[in-house]
Write a protein that binds this DNA or RNA. Structure first.
Lengths: 338, 338
DNA sequence: TTGTAGGCGTTATCAA
DNA sequence: TTGATAACGCCTACAA
């Protein structure tokens, strides 16, 4: 039996309308009644029922953050920033995992779950956009894409320049004197724009340096987890002509790759240099520490949340594309020192 | 203008009551009308409004998972399992970060935010329970504690045996021939039960081995992050008599400690053995890989979610205490091999 | 088996 | 400035 507006109204000898006004802080209420209402609220320990408010106003104050796996450090760090940024704007965040389940991703996007539970969706697909391209951007559910950058302007997105980032990472390896540069993280499915863009940047850097891409050195990774990097790197190291450097499409892949190098009896960076993308905290503490392309995750989160808030208040605002900055961070995994 | 029950009823030429019955799947509905209703639902693409349903039934189908920081790998892995376990029971999960903000933790617990947004709370405090002890377990908000184990039976909790786990880790170091065993992770505030219990287990293992605890070797860690482990271990290594082993109260602390050992020009495990608690995935890939006490996180998550579901359906069910199993996992950081 | 009506707790409209 | 009252969309007695 929770306390309702009516209870407070009765206690304060006013109408519900007046209490509602006091709670909202909005309209003009005489100081005298206001104080009386406040007292009643305190005394009864009244808390507004958000669900009822939502039913009435159509707004829940909740955003959904959809990621493939929350325990992938990059997504966890992103979630942290998103939750904080959302809190500043008065939103709470619901985290959904799609777990590489395309059907689930699609359902979340088409709004099969859009049952008025949240006001907007921040979607960080590892993948999928192919499906998105065919979807009608439903005005009823504000959506901002994170990390994808290959659309036709019908959706908001916030992402880095993937081609440039991959280029920078590869060029860094080449500048350190490496000539057989491998890459881990391609996807068989051409729909996945992020890996495709990164491969593009990788190949562009090779060309600029006059190096010939070797098909053998381009490796897929089913997911972007440590085990995938481990497996791919292990395979690379058994080649007749193994690579002297590996560019991984995520830091987590790089963690697996580094371990694979050790297990093969080689050294990082002396025998094989390794670089990743994301700049997760883990990379500062590994031995050797991991060179990487750093994404400005707080910036991305703040932009995305700000964007969705704007779209919520004005659904017809035109879609925009925000490019987040990235910087190359050189650490031990690409710097021969010892 | 979303589709409502009434729209469907009109389209199918039946009453809302009948449509509701079909949606719920419950009551007896003639096959003929049922099909007609189904068709109408499909055609109009009707989705029940969860908010309205909630207002009526008092249930949201949402659980809150409260953790200090979602980007601490252990909490991220826990969140993953909780989200999955909750989904199996038809619940969605809202992740809240307290960020070491005691006031915020307290507000969440006292239910200042208990505005009917979720049906229950899974609370994994890094800390606090002191406050909890004084609180009235509010029957209005089902609560399950994760990782804490020191209460008087008024709350459900799911946790490992912290004393035993710490004892096992310490005993393992001693069994490997170490005699100056340090510990990182104590808290100045005695209210924090988990660190206190772990210190207890640590000291017990020392005593059993006939070793005298050295106050110098017992180090606090403000939070349980890599940087804290790094700082504490660095300080330990400058002692006149540095330790030959370090037991860290979390794997993340251990990651920082290992890095500190390297930066001090020493080796793990040859000069200093390191062991943690949690068994996060990261520890399998570091170099050297990290020995640890493995928690059965999927078990913990499933127990917790099951428990909260039970308490939601019967608020008066007596509080129980679930002890999750733990196992020692020996890896390279405590095994001299090379 | 199905229809009608009332209420969950808010906010918003319309008077007063 | 404040009061009464109608929605918001759903579920569920109570009837039929």
């Amino acid at each position: 039996m929770p306390i309702t507006l009516r209870d407070v109204a009765e206690q304060a000898q006013v109408s519900v309308r007046t209490v509602s006004n006091v709670v909202a802080g909005y309209t003009h209420v005489s100081e005298r009644t206001r104080l009386r209402v406040q007292a009643a609220i305190e005394e009864l320990d009244y808390r507004p029922n958000l669900v009822a408010r939502t039913l009435r106003t159509g707004r829940t104050g909740v955003l959904a953050l959809v990621v493939p796996e929350i325990d992938v450090p990059y997504f966890a760090e992103l979630a942290r920033e998103v939750i904080d940024a959302a809190a500043e704007l008065g939103y709470r965040v619901m985290v959904d995992q799609t777990g590489h389940d395309h059907e689930r991703e699609r359902r979340l996007l088409t709004g099969a779950d859009r049952t008025m539970l949240f006001d907007g969706v921040l979607f960080s697909p590892l993948v999928t956009p192919g499906e998105l391209a065919e979807m009608e951007p439903s005005r009823s559910m504000p959506l901002v894409l994170l990390g994808e950058h290959d659309f036709d302007g019908r959706y908001d997105h916030v992402a880095i320049d993937n081609v440039q980032a991959a280029h920078d990472a590869t060029a860094h390896l080449i500048a350190r004197g490496r000539t057989r540069v491998a890459a881990i993280g391609t996807q068989p499915d051409e729909d996945y724009t992020t890996p495709r863009q990164r491969t593009l940047g990788y190949e562009r850097a090779l060309h600029e340096a006059g190096l010939t891409p070797d098909r053998e050195l381009l490796r897929p990774a089913a997911h972007y987890r440590r085990a995938d990097g481990y497996d791919a790197a292990s395979a690379l190291l058994t080649l007749p002509q193994p690579p002297d450097a590996i560019f991984c499409y995520s830091d987590l892949l790089a963690m697996g790759a580094m371990r694979a190098v050790f297990d093969a009896g080689a050294r990082v960076p002396d025998d094989v240099a390794v670089i990743g993308i994301d700049d997760i905290e883990e990379g500062q503490y590994t031995h050797p520490s991991l060179s990487t392309v750093s994404l400005d995750t707080p910036f991305i989160a703040r932009q995305a949340v700000g964007r969705i808030a704007e779209r919520i208040s004005d659904p017809d605002t035109p879609a925009i594309e925000v490019t987040a900055p990235h910087t190359l961070v050189e650490r031990e995994s690409t710097t021969s020192t010892t």
